[in-house]
Amino acid sequence: MLVVFDVDGTLLDSQHAIVASMAEAYQLNGLEPPSREQVLAVVGLSVREAVEAISLDRPDHPIDAIGLAFKQSFNARRRAAPEADPLYDGALDVLKSLAAREGVLLGIATGNSRRGVDRFLDTFGVRDLFAATQCADDAPSKPHPAMLLQAAAQAGVPAEDMVMIGDTTFDMMMARSAGARAIGVAWGYHPTDRLLASGAERVISSFGELDTALGFGPLEVRAPAAAE
């Protein structure tokens, strides 16, 4: 089984950096910044698609310039304080526990950039836990299924043996389009009723519920590789 996680809003509580960076991007382009609610509603989309959604009724907005300013602001914040956006409670423990299970591989599918994914993996020391990492630089924006289909191919797992864990409707729709299972998390940026309506088979309220949601029993740890 391949268990694929979204990053922002699922593993990482990054809402403050995202909202602040988007506000700065609009201000730098002489525009009124969007509200927190507007920004969080599009978290999960790739940057261009997110800006297009925020500026949907303003065709005069310079989408590319706003997107570039957002990336520069967001990356500057992450460089200045890479651990300012914390992991959610239980995230690191559940990643390590799942990675130790026999027959389980882990993946990432995020609207973040490759630079952002690499920074996340290295900041929290989890690079070796993931068999597949897909991001906005690799595929069309969520909810297009390409990220998940590529993650399945990268890990050598059929799509029907894959589960997407995410906090947005885009994650749930992407999973269903790819033929994968979809499990929502209640602590992210989209409400539970929308997650269920967009295809989540269930929504968990803590990482402690994930093993049960995935259908796992007691932990079966992989045997260590034999020394050469």
Score class of each variant (00 low, 15 high):
Ala76Met: 09
Leu105Ala: 13
Leu68Phe: 05
Ala80Pro: 10
Asn112His: 10
Val104Met: 01
Ala99Gly: 04
His61Cys: 09
Ala69Ser: 13
Ala91Asn: 08
Phe70Ile: 02
Val51His: 00
Gln72Asn: 09
Leu68Lys: 06
Asp64Ala: 11
Lys96Trp: 12
Asn75Gln: 15
Phe74Glu: 08
Asn112Leu: 14
Glu83Gly: 05
Leu87Val: 04
Glu52Asn: 02
Leu87Cys: 10
Phe74Gly: 04
His61Ile: 09
Ala99Lys: 13
Gly111Lys: 09
Thr110Cys: 11
Gly107Leu: 05
Leu68Met: 04
Ala65Lys: 13
Pro62Glu: 00
Pro62Asn: 02
Ser55Leu: 06
Ala91Glu: 06
Asp89Arg: 15
Ile108Asn: 04
Phe74Asn: 13
Ala80His: 12
Leu92Trp: 06
Gly107Ser: 04
Pro62His: 03
Leu98Lys: 04
Ile63Tyr: 03
Asn75Arg: 14
Asp89Ala: 15
Asp64Ser: 10
Gly90Lys: 14
Ala53Trp: 11
Arg58Met: 06
Phe70Gln: 00
Ala100Cys: 08
Thr110Val: 11
Ala69Glu: 01
Thr110Asp: 09
Leu95Asp: 01
Tyr88Ile: 08
Ala109Met: 09
Ile66Pro: 00
Ser73Met: 08
Phe70Ser: 00
Ser97Ala: 12
Arg101His: 08
Asn112Thr: 10
Ile108Ala: 05
Arg114Phe: 09
Asp85Phe: 00
Ile54Lys: 08
Gln72Pro: 01
Leu106Phe: 03
Leu98Thr: 02
Gly111Met: 05
Leu95Thr: 03
Ala84Lys: 01
Ala80Thr: 08
Leu56Pro: 00
Gly67Gln: 03
His61Val: 15
Ile54Asp: 02
Pro62Lys: 06
Glu83Ser: 15
Leu56Gly: 06
Glu52Tyr: 01
Gln72His: 12
Pro62Met: 01
Leu98Val: 02
Pro59Arg: 03
Asn112Glu: 10
Pro86Phe: 04
Pro82Met: 00
Tyr88Val: 06
Ile108Ser: 05
Ala76Cys: 06
Ser55Pro: 07
Gly107Trp: 04
Ala76Val: 09
Asp85Ser: 15
Gly67Ile: 02
His61Trp: 09
Pro82Leu: 00
Tyr88Met: 11
Lys71Ile: 15
Pro86Thr: 07
Ser97Asp: 13
Gln72Lys: 14
Asp64Gln: 10
Gln72Asp: 09
Ala81Asp: 15
Val94Ser: 06
Arg77Pro: 04
Ala65Asp: 07
Phe70Trp: 07
Ser73Tyr: 10
Ser113His: 09
Gly111Asp: 05
Arg79Val: 14
Val94Trp: 07
Pro59Glu: 00
Asn112Gly: 14
Asp57Phe: 07
Ser97Gly: 09
Gly103His: 02
Ile108Phe: 03
Ala84Val: 00
Ile108Val: 15
Ala100Lys: 04
Ala80Asp: 13
Phe74Met: 11
Ala80Leu: 11
Ala76Thr: 14
Lys71Phe: 07
Ile54Trp: 07
Ala100Pro: 01
Ala81Cys: 05
Ile63Thr: 06
Ala84Ser: 13
Thr110Gly: 12
Asn112Phe: 13
Lys96Gln: 14
Gly103Gln: 03
Ala81Met: 04
Ala69Ile: 02
Lys96Phe: 10
Ala69Lys: 02
Glu52Met: 11
Gly111Ser: 10
Pro86Cys: 07
Pro82Gln: 00
Ala109Val: 08
Leu106Tyr: 03
Gly103Asp: 01
Asp60Arg: 08
Asp93Thr: 12
